[in-house]
């Protein structure tokens, strides 16, 4: 298990390096002189030259990359062009808001989705199964931005149950502000996970070892919850791990619709202003988040399934 974990994290690091390098090169391929866009049309040539030198934009691209990684090793992501503050500080200031949103979304959608899927699989072709199927499909089909706007309109504006914008103060304040965005971006995941769990459960319930467990008189609840669910959940864990990446991009618009601080909002704002250091810092952190979450998913699977430990 330890060897597996080490190897898995080695792979994660490699993915991270590749992703960050690609992003580094891509942002430099965007047309237009970044220094001019950042400083505006009325900047003096001296100022332009100073910023070009500061960002090392006059160097060949391979050298720029080397400088970037060199600084990164020392935990230095550069300085925000406008405020002059450390990028690391800015990014880590926004990160908790995005993390809270993503974890809240995945938590409620996974719990509800797995429950719904497992229940539907345990009672296939009953009325409840059909209702669950109809609900799941409509959840998947509903675009998150529509859900976000509608829930904002209904629950915040008309019913006034939850606050509409911002991130809130204190635990309950933050919780209150989290409900609607987490609902909006988690809803389609409920349906998706429920369908996945149901299909996976039905397959596992048909396997011989389930018949064996029943033939030994093991209680049906234990057969479903332990003997079947532990296997049926494996693909779901993988999907959730990868889903963290999708949730990151959902978080971008949720943060804009609900005017929440967060990484997504930071990235959008800094791309439009060509604020290279902030873009690179945010991308690095979100890529890191994605890589860590997929690696975690693999590790959880290895913990759940002894066969995966030896296979990898």
């Amino acid at each position: 298990m330890l060897l597996y974990a080490t190897r898995r994290f080695g792979l994660a690091l490699l993915i991270l390096i590749v992703a960050v390098t690609v992003m580094f090169l891509m942002i430099r391929a965007v047309p237009g002189d970044p220094v001019q866009i950042m400083l505006g049309p009325r900047a003096t040539p001296e100022l332009q030259a100073r910023l070009t030198a500061e960002l090392a934009l006059d160097q060949p691209i391979w050298k720029q990359l080397l400088i970037f990684y060199g600084n990164l090793m020392q935990g230095d992501l550069g300085i925000d062009v406008f405020s002059g503050r450390s990028v690391t500080a800015i990014v880590f200031e926004q990160l908790p808001h995005t993390l809270a949103l993503i974890f809240a979304s995945i938590l409620w959608s996974a719990l509800l989705g797995i429950g719904l899927g497992a229940y539907a699989a345990a009672h296939p072709n009953t009325l409840i199964d059909r209702i669950a199927a109809a609900l799941s499909v409509s959840f998947v089909a509903a675009p998150a931005f529509v859900v976000a706007l509608l829930s904002l309109l209904i629950f915040a504006v008309h019913l006034q149950w939850f606050p509409a914008i911002g991130a809130g103060e204190g635990f309950w304040g933050r919780f209150d502000h989290l409900v609607l965005p987490a609902f909006a971006i988690g809803l389609s995941w409920v349906g998706y996970i429920a369908r996945l769990v149901r299909a996976s459960m039905l397959e596992v319930m048909g396997e011989s070892h389930i018949r064996t467990a029943r033939a030994f008189g093991i209680h049906e609840r234990r057969v479903v919850m332990v003997y079947a669910l532990r296997i049926a959940i494996l693909p779901v864990v993988t999907v959730i791990g990868v889903g963290m990446g999708f949730l990151l991009s959902s978080a971008v618009f949720a943060e804009i619709v609900f005017a929440r601080p967060g990484l997504g909002k930071l990235v959008i704002d800094s791309i439009t202003t060509r604020n290279y250091p902030i873009v690179m810092g945010s991308v690095l952190i979100s890529t890191g988040l994605f890589v860590v979450s997929t690696a975690m998913a693999d590790l959880i699977n290895a913990w759940l399934d002894p066969r995966a430990r030896t296979a990898a």
Binding site: H209, T212, A215, G217, R230, I231
Partner: peptide, 18 residues
């Protein structure tokens, strides 16, 4: 599993793999 027990055909599939 108490008074009546069974041994199934395929030993490769008969135990829970996890």
């Amino acid at each position: 599993g108490a008074d009546i027990s069974i041994v199934f055909q395929d030993p490769m599939q008969t135990h829970n793999p996890v």
